[in-house]
Amino acid sequence: MNGAKLRQQIAFSVLGAITLLIVVPIILVILYIIINGAGSITWQFLTQAPRNGMKAGGIFPAIVGTILLVVGTMLFALPLGVLSAIYLVEYARDDLFTRMIKLSVVNLSGIPSIVYGLFGFTAFVLLLHFGTSLLAGSLTLGIMSLPVIITASKEALESVPLTYREISLSLGATKWQTIRYCVLPYAIPGILTGTVLSLSRAAGETAPILFTVAAFYLPRLPHSAFDQVMALPYHLYVIATQVPNIPLSISFATALVLIALVFLMNLVSIILRAHYRKKRLW
């Protein structure tokens, strides 16, 4: 073997080993959680409220709370994010104002989640009198999710070839018709990916919901958007730090449910993406 080939072999092996190194911790974490938590996952655990100082019973209200929060976040952040991305890509001129918007979107994604929590508490809970509620929590998580949704949607829209817009306009379509029929359908897979990514982050966040929605212990389902809910990440934090003498397996089982929920969301996005991508050939 000559020198160049050997070096090529070495580079290849090093790169492969490093990639493997990245996968190892993820697999270990998941395996560890499954091994320690799977035993405690029973039908009761998934469908019952916690009992006996949260040492027994299930986590049903927390599961429902997290799902409701994700849905609420999506209802708020998806339209706002996609519409502003459309504005930025299709309509905005490249002027100072646009650049300021783009800069704030970038900066928004760099803000620590606890700051979002405090902002949500001041703005939604206190100022707008929503109280500690599903609404306040969803809005807070929504604002936190916006930058990722906007950035992903922007990239998806920008990746639609310019010629599509050109043909559509040359056939006499208005700008809105062009966006509606020639741009959006092809941008949907990318938009979906970004949305699900940011929503699965939102599902796992604790800090933003800490002061805005999360209930320490509330063994019933919410009655309205102005009700508090339990949520999986906060529940996990509570039982891991605030409840003494709780079986460790309950914490692991809760973590496992949270991870499974996030995986499920990603799976749905993959299926949707594959479905839309069939139409996209260019």
Partner: peptide
């Protein structure tokens, strides 16, 4: 146009 730009 130059390229046959059919929609997908």
């Amino acid at each position: 146009f130059q390229r046959p730009n059919v929609f997908s």
